[in-house]
Design a protein around this nucleic acid. Sequence first.
DNA 1: GAGTGGTCTAGACCACTCC
DNA 2: GAGTGGTCTAGACCACTCC
Lengths: 242, 242
Amino acid sequence: MPHFISQKDDRPYSPPKPLYEQVKSYVLKNMESGEWPAYFQLPSEHTLVREMGISRMTIHRALRELTQAGYLERIQGVGTFVAAPKKQRKAIELSEIDDIIRRRGGRHQCDVHFLQEEPIDNDAAAMMAMTSGEEVYRSYFVHRDNGLPVMLEDRYVHPKFMPEYLESDFTHLTADTLLSQKFALLSHSHVVQAAVSNAEINHFLELETTTACIVINRKSWLGDDVISAARLVFPGNRIQLT
Amino acid sequence: MPHFISQKDDRPYSPPKPLYEQVKSYVLKNMESGEWPAYFQLPSEHTLVREMGISRMTIHRALRELTQAGYLERIQGVGTFVAAPKKQRKAIELSEIDDIIRRRGGRHQCDVHFLQEEPIDNDAAAMMAMTSGEEVYRSYFVHRDNGLPVMLEDRYVHPKFMPEYLESDFTHLTADTLLSQKFALLSHSHVVQAAVSNAEINHFLELETTTACIVINRKSWLGDDVISAARLVFPGNRIQLT
DNA sequence: GAGTGGTCTAGACCACTCC
DNA sequence: GAGTGGTCTAGACCACTCC
């Protein structure tokens, strides 16, 4: 049992780690050393209170934070256990297109092919949770890296949530950035596919021949409302997502 | 000011959300509505205690959890503020292939085409931080969803870190899962591209014609060491990544 | 009924900032 | 010195599990 430094005993010069952090370290150390393997049942809060001389709220906070971080599992009425080795999900981070281009040392530029109000068609209505024929804002951009087209952005925006969309300046601000600034709590869902380019894509991305492209369908949500849906097309031979 | 349901008043039949969750919802609602915009200074804990009739520890827990989640920023001695709109990175979560297939209701199966020790070539040596000609473990798998090939997995594994690789059973456990189980702290980096299939891919994925594919190059790191590198090829017309 | 974790309170002391 | 957030305590009541 290690020695726990009480806050009161200590000199002001070197502030000790808070007690709950010390408890967390103690638990993690036991897990790392193999002393407490996966599925091991930890001592109860009451036992730790007694053994460590720390109040239950503090013990509880430490165990709660380790649980939130995925290290422990707690079952009310049963106990606290070392979490099973987790099958972690591997995330691919997607940056904004302008950030990707600038990070590569390129110059970002955005051509606005159109930006208008139009009646929504069936497919887009389903994506946007709107009814077919309803008016929707639609934009069609081509993003360039030092002049070379690297992404086509075909976007629908719900007029109710973003009435000012058509008046925005997209040469200095991407639509994604604009949306994120307006809605701090925006979340996104993605579907990634591969497809070969068709005549439309070849035209706007200035491709000479049929090319394999990454197609990302991104929906932007505010709670249960779909604020915007975009189809992003990247020519596979011109850009890599990292 | 909304009405906060005290735990004691309530009937046992419909347990109310805990008070700290109600405080979190209240804060988030004010943020969503624009009432509390970015950089807005929230009422102090003491004020919230008075106005809501909730104890400081409970208020504090709610604000702490929102801070940990990135919604608020707190400065000791100064106050609590709505966090600046973050230029958030949009993550695509990649599940393991067997999880993707099972989630779709399919049956996962893995064909082992080869699993051997071989001298590493130049390109792979660069990826694995090894020297050309050194012995490396290499595996070549095709994953199937109800019999249909949906992913080709061409993988190199560093023998020093995983000497038991060649003896493992890959019909019930993916290589990724095996690695994650052995190395709990494994991290990954990804490069995503699109490419059209070549003769090799057409053969192993049983594609009739040239097809657009998603190609993910995944490196698995333990600290600064590359444990494994894999090329994952998904036929774009058979699978979507979500 | 004994033991577990989940929540909440009222009060305390503290470090820090701003004036 | 007044106000802020950070931590900690001792005690309470509760829901839940297991026997």
